[in-house]
Amino acid sequence: MKFITSSNDLLKELKALFNVINLNNKLPILETFYLKIKKKNILNITVSDLEITMTTKLRINSINYGSAAIPYKILIDILKNIPEQPLTFIKEIDNKLKIIYQNGEYNISIYSSEEYPKYSILENTNSILISEKQLLNIINNTLFAVGNDDIRPVINGVLFEINSKMSNFVSTNTTILVKYTRKDILSNNKIKFIISKKTLNILKNNLENSDEYVYISYNKLNTSFLFKKKKIICSLINGIYPNYLSIINNFYNKILIINRNYFINSIKRVTYFSKIITQIILNLSKNQSKISSWDYNNKAFEYLFCSYEGDPIKIGFNSKFLIDILSNINCDDIKFEILDNKSSCKLTPNLSISNIEEILILIMPIKDKD
């Protein structure tokens, strides 16, 4: 294998692939970039952790076909320390690789490309087209609430549920539940699968806010995302997702409406001292509403500018989770619906985002530790 490429162009592609690599894996071959030339002037670069495989294509000047598995750390470190210039890669016998630059060269040991795991083409698949912008919005509106639970792995991803009338995308960490609904993503086939948090983070880092389509193929075990010059194949999370509709309450007797950015800043101000106890208390009433927080030796409170209807209530929340929610809702004012200080509360934009998308978020209150 022999080819010439721009150092910066190659480094850019490797950075996009890097997050797939599992730095704690026990197979050294998976700590490599697998480079392969099978078409003239096109370099395929692949990384895998066995559950996720990602491939991208880079236009090069190819001289010979072939493949090589190059240790990721060595290759990235070399490229980071070389100014932009053409590099010549030459694979030699006995798993050696020569990289020639303007005034020098590297000779490094590589792995046999025959050792690199091969992924098969997905069989018995269905497919759907979603724009990059739509998929990015799905991820941004759900990823922050994904769980991290070894006992219940089904909550460690986002549920994709698509039918002929609407699509729901759901995530939960048991304290927060997000249901993001779109009416412009439809399918005659009933689609239901769970995508892992790692896969969604990789997609988020590679998608653009464009109307270009992502071609999604899926079967019972795997799904693939094909967009532009990239392809991601991942294992689906196996299991039955919790019945999220059964825990969405439609009866609330207290309503708080407050500006989203103002509320975020209020939480940050009163939790300045509470580095250990990540809790805020809301004392809500029609006459006056207050937010407070404390640490072992410090305390802070602030009166809120808001609208509140209902009986007075004192209710506590995890401040970090509440900021995560407020930071990921795209609206001016938040509608906070409350039943009591033990049941889940519902957050929605006070005014609808649009006529094609809706978001509903539940958050469980926490016991007042005061």
Rank of each mutant, 00 (worst) to 15 (best):
M1I: 11
T5I: 13
S6F: 14
S6T: 13
L10G: 09
L14A: 07
N19P: 15
N25V: 11
L30E: 01
T32C: 12
K38I: 04
K38T: 13
K39W: 04
K39F: 08
E51R: 05
E51G: 09
I52N: 00
K57A: 09
K57P: 00
K57V: 01
I63Y: 02
A68F: 02
L79N: 10
K80A: 12
I82V: 10
Q85W: 01
K91F: 09
I93T: 13
D94Y: 13
D94V: 00
K96W: 07
L97V: 01
Q102A: 13
G104T: 10
Y111I: 12
E115M: 00
P117V: 00
E123V: 10
T125C: 10
L129K: 14
N140G: 09
N141T: 08
N141H: 05
T142R: 04
N148W: 03
R152M: 12
P153A: 00
P153C: 10
V154L: 04
N156M: 06
K165N: 13
V170C: 01
N173Q: 07
N173L: 00
T174F: 11
T175M: 13
K179L: 12
R182L: 02
N188L: 06
K190I: 08
I191P: 00
I195N: 08
K198M: 03
N205R: 11
V214A: 06
Y215R: 03
I216H: 01
L221S: 13
T223L: 03
S224V: 12
K231P: 10
I232V: 07
I240K: 11
N249H: 12
N250E: 15
Y252H: 14
Y252C: 07
I258W: 10
S266M: 09
L284W: 07
S285M: 08
K286D: 13
Y303E: 14
C306R: 12
G310R: 04
G310C: 09
I313W: 04
K320Q: 09
L322M: 02
S327F: 03
I329C: 14
D333G: 07
I334P: 00
K335D: 06
F336N: 05
S343P: 02
N350K: 07
N350Y: 05
S354V: 06
E358Q: 14
I359E: 08
I359A: 11
I361T: 09
I361C: 08
L362C: 04
P365A: 10
I366K: 05
D370G: 11
